[in-house]
Design a protein around this nucleic acid. Structure first.
Lengths: 186, 186
DNA sequence: GAAATCATTTACCATTTGGTAAAAAGTGAT
DNA sequence: ATCACTTTTTACCAAATGGTAAATGATTTC
């Protein structure tokens, strides 16, 4: 819980009362490895903070291949970018996870009590999007080896606890190619 | 100017007085084809609305190749995602352009007078980012032909007025490859 | 309108990546 | 330890893409 509060305080100041109010809205949830947290087509009306573990966002492309779009690990918030619409993607636990949950409603209604809450949540959301964009941008216009090396830099804690097939589809290559690349790098 | 106001009104309601205030903060600017609007490393403290023409955002990768990261065409706002930091990328006019400009300060200070302005600008910014992400996401995990076809769908007005070399680098392929792909599609 | 310049296509071959399949390595349960 | 199962690596060949260079086409300038 400390981690969550520290995370939020990066984006604005809060007093003890406000922090307690935020805490009072949380629930905890655990996921087992391979559990789906959200299925595509369903509503995702929660805000999620990852205490432990790794989630991935994935979907099926028009050839029916499962594509990993993004990874999210400890001390990050997962916010629904398509508020009010069904999720177009799956959210799956790659490892066992411990999560802190807010209902989207509670999360939004905190702005009725906490002055500046909307500004904080907008900053959080925007920073997340910009970071995601930055990480995905390097996946275009670089060859596969460079993409893998960049992945290792940008997700330093992930390489050893995520199946290679997920990393391969994140990088836009087959797992055979990724295996070859890993061999050449050694 | 009508186009700008219509654009903003998509994100929230404004009365005539507020609209006039917004209008009073604008200046116009024209660019010739190939002019750089912003150079990498310099500050970009403006908000730009494109009345006519096409801009591109580009940079040089670690191999010194010029990479087109994104295109922006008519009736879109260009907002600096790295407020307070120097721009890491160039913004260049691909065609002759007519722009409407706000200084970042004027743009931000409108929230002192217009209730809900911050909410409107956050929505604008977030929608832009989500759209950009959506467009760029399909560039990973699809083969080059599919990427080109997707580009034609997502930027239907651009194919005929943008040099192919820019499109190629946006798609992450050489212009020779793009030329081959275009030949096969015909 | 001709020359010069820039953009696009084509050609050739080298390199990278994909597709299919099998082998090897790792994991978990009994 | 063995078996069943999953993940990762390897191998082989086909297909796609890159790199270099030249030919064609389009645009600008004088």
């Amino acid at each position: 819980m400390k981690e969550l509060i520290e995370y939020i305080l990066q984006f604005g100041n809060l007093n003890k009362q406000q922090i307690d109010l935020i805490k009072s809205k949380t629930t905890e949830k655990e996921l087992r490895k391979n559990d789906y947290f959200i299925e595509a087509g369903k509503m995702f009306n929660q805000v999620v903070f990852i205490l432990e573990g790794v989630l991935r966002i994935c979907y099926y492309n028009n050839k029916g291949e499962e594509i990993t779009k993004y990874f999210v690990d400890e001390n990050r918030l997962v916010v629904n970018p398509y508020k009010g619409e069904p999720m177009p993607e799956y959210i799956q636990a790659i490892t066992d996870c411990k999560l802190i949950l807010f209902s989207q409603q509670d999360w939004d209604e905190l702005s009725n009590t906490i002055v500046g809450w909307e500004s904080i949540t907008n900053k959080i959301f925007q920073k997340g999007l910009i970071e995601k964009m930055d990480r995905r941008s390097s996946l275009v216009s670089e060859d596969a080896s460079t993409r893998y090396l960049t992945f290792l830099e940008k997700f330093p804690t992930l390489a050893n606890r995520v199946p290679l097939s997920y990393i391969a589809s994140y990088l836009g290559i087959t797992q055979q190619s990724l295996s070859r690349i890993r061999k050449n790098i050694r």
